[in-house]
Amino acid sequence: MPTPFIQTRALEYTYFAEDGRAIPALRGIDLTVGRGEFVALVGPNGSGKSTLARHFNALLLPTAGEVWVDGLSTADPRQVQAIRQRVGMVFQNPDNQLVAGTVEEDVAFGPENLGVPPAEIRRRVDEALEVVGMTAYRHHPPHMLSGGQKQRVAIAGALATRPHCIIFDEPTSMLDAEGRRQVLQTVRQLNAELGLTVILITQSMDEAALARRVLVMDGGQIVRDGPPEEVLEDPEVEKLGLGQPFAAEVARRLRERGVPLPSGLLTVEALVAALTETHRSYAVGLPG
């Protein structure tokens, strides 16, 4: 188990609807996310995914229970800036999170808020744009970029505060296939190469399969927590209507047709490897 980075204890969050009803959005969450983990957070609409994620950088504070980030309590107002420096967020709508008129000025926004000296801001902006491959667009205004490019700028903006962790709140749901590919590649790179802790909220089980740990939420609780191979094929999880990774669905239907296949085949590569193995054994067993 890596060193804990985010910890919650008996976290509850209740808000009041317009008609005055109290709505419990989070109901007793105990969770530890370790440094350098890649966690996918899935669940039906309204299950509390975004609400939970917003507790991780003190955008929301618990109604009851506690949240620590890197040992700092989110309830302590003096630590809020330190927490927001450590945990960056990238949101769903690429248009509504870019603040400035050009790419590099936008990336500079976070460090500017933290009072980083100008020369250092310059260095971080250049670095961050390099990581997401947007250096060539540094002087472009955001509205001239594609959705995927805007999301990469948003990622660079989060990187420029030198965080330990980035939370992605459905970052690909408004993108086309190419934008999705670009963003997911960047997400994986941040985790694998820079060692950042990544929390990816997603509707797509194929995206969740990229993580090494999947948390399933339903009704404000975490109902399942484990490696994707175990969680994503769980019939209980499927009942939530989340779908399955494409390869897992094909494998399931093949098993129903009597093709012997192991469980946990979440990617096309894994499925092809397993099928090819099975197929060879068929071939060996056939006469002539």
Binding site: R84, M89, V99
Partner: peptide
């Protein structure tokens, strides 16, 4: 949405 994003990026 922008207000949330700005806050998340440390704007005060």
């Amino acid at each position: 949405e922008l207000a949330v994003a700005m806050e998340a990026r440390g704007f005060r």
